[in-house]
Amino acid sequence: MSSSVLKFENVSLSFDGVENVLDNVSLEMHAGDTLIILGAAGAGKTVMVKIALGLLGSTSGRITLFGQDVTKFTEPQWFTIRPRIGMLFQEGGLFDSLTIEENVAYPLVNRTKMTAEQAKPKVEEALKFVELGHTLDKFPSELSGGMRRRVGIARAAVSDPDLLLYDSPTAGLDPITANRIMALIIQEREIRNATSAIISHRFQDGHMMANFRYNPESKKLERMPEDSPLRQRTRFLVMHDGRIVFEGNERELDASRDPYVSKFSMHRSIH
């Protein structure tokens, strides 16, 4: 078994006035795993990844990151572990006072002693990867929603993190752009071999992650063989009102009779 990357043990969170935003959530991700977190809006998906990144604290439970207990970490301690995690925020979370180049260079310049000049080759490479090499001097407001999302992916991945968290990478995008973004995420997984968690409300996103791989030779996505280890390592998680109501692989998800869970597998016929 490969090493544990992220582990939640009975994690709960209540805000003032709102009980159980997260209710007793337990999960574990190992190196190389892909986790697809499905659920309706307000089910606690974003809150869960924000807890994993230390942006929100939990009320109870234990969180372990890369084998280290981070439950009681202070903000300065979090700064030491966050460089190992890349996060794509909903809508990208780009700094709109900075250019695209400065945005992508931000994690490099701020965490390492790199200057903007030294970071430039890596930034260009990361932007080329998301097919936005020509936008270096533009500002986020000049890009479309899908492009901003892609810049967000470049920024999350530029510092070679061990764990990538994607918060709703396809939300609010048209199907063509959404598929392009998912293809990039699959490519990212293949090339960096990073552990990734993807929040989504679209079953197709998970279906793509579970069934397709990137072929570096033909530079295209292709269907994974039935016995591919990647297939085994892609798991689905369905959340409802702060609880995990389903955990398993795609076949199990399809077979589920639970009325809420099966809502997330109904659109299968599209592929």
Partner: peptide, 14 residues
């Protein structure tokens, strides 16, 4: 509200 402050924390800036 556009999560830029969260992004800032995530990217290593207080």
């Amino acid at each position: 509200v556009t999560e830029q402050i969260d992004a800032m924390r995530a990217l290593g800036t207080d």
